[in-house]
Simulated assay, not measured.
Amino acid sequence: MKRTLALCITLFVAAVLPGAVRAADNAKSAPVDSLSLLERAVARDSSNFDNLYHLGVMYLDRDRPSEAIKVFGKATKLRPDDQRATVNLGVAFDALGQPAQAQEQYRNALKVAPRDSVAKCRLASSLYAQGKYSEAMGMLREVIQEKPRSYCAYFTLGVAFADAGIYRDAIRMWQQVLRIAPTSPEAVSAKESIEVLQKFVQP
């Protein structure tokens, strides 16, 4: 029963996990006509990094990871040291169910910026999804040590605890998300997940 509930919660919160189809910089979705304009701009000039990057973000926000991979791939060739594009390329690979390629991109981003908490959270999420629990949990704890306000790490740890049936610790992690980033997408999911779990936790 507990395991089943935890699995349901894990699936529910997966919509905002670091490995989910959502751009790493939380860019707001733009109107459809903006997407068309960017597509035309990139078709005219595929050497403009900013246009490629923002087009990739739009594709991710619209659950179009295959197209995101193409434009982020071009963007990373133009600027191999830009970890945002590299992380988002990893996100797109994860969305297509290609964790090895995704993890390679996250690690590439960490070579450029070793303390990038977003890249580490994404990598940990991808590893956890593959069943590499110890490595993922260790990485998340490392993120929290380096950046105590890294809400993505608390959120993912909460998912891991819920999946393991350790509900009190899951709630505690998600409460940290609410405290640190109350307006984030993770906070919305954390709040709803806490409400579900509290029904199964003895006072």
Rank of each mutant, 00 (worst) to 15 (best):
D163E: 08
M58L: 11
L89D: 00
L17C: 10
A102E: 04
V42E: 01
A68N: 05
S134N: 08
S117Y: 01
R3F: 09
Y106M: 08
A68V: 07
E135W: 13
V87P: 00
S193E: 14
A164P: 00
E142V: 13
Q103D: 07
V188A: 06
D63I: 14
S29Q: 11
A160L: 04
Y128E: 04
P185S: 06
T86K: 15
S47M: 02
L60E: 04
L35V: 11
S117K: 00
G97V: 08
M1Q: 12
A20T: 02
L110C: 12
K191G: 02
I69Y: 07
N48S: 04
M1F: 13
D169N: 10
S29C: 08
S150C: 14
S189F: 05
A102D: 03
L55I: 01
Q105M: 14
R64K: 09
V188C: 05
V32L: 11
A23L: 10
R62H: 06
I194Y: 15
V201G: 04
D45R: 08
L140Q: 08
R179H: 07
A187V: 04
Y53F: 10
R179V: 07
P148C: 08
R84V: 15
S47L: 03
G56C: 05
T76S: 02
A15R: 07
I194E: 07
L96Q: 07
L197P: 15
P31D: 08
D63P: 09
A164L: 06
Q202P: 14
K28D: 15
L37S: 11
S150Y: 00
P114D: 06
P148Y: 12
S46N: 02
G90D: 04
Y151C: 05
R44S: 09
E104Q: 13
I194D: 06
D163A: 10
P18F: 03
K2R: 10
P80I: 09
A92C: 05
F72D: 00
P148W: 13
S117P: 15
P182C: 11
Q130L: 09
V91I: 12
L60N: 01
L110P: 12
L52T: 03
V143H: 08
L89A: 01
F49A: 02
P65C: 11
R22H: 06
A136N: 12
C8S: 15
T156D: 07
N88R: 02
E67D: 04
G56I: 02
L5E: 01
P80Y: 03
S193W: 14
L140N: 09
K2L: 12
L17E: 11
L123W: 05
N48L: 02
Y133L: 10
G165T: 10
N108D: 13
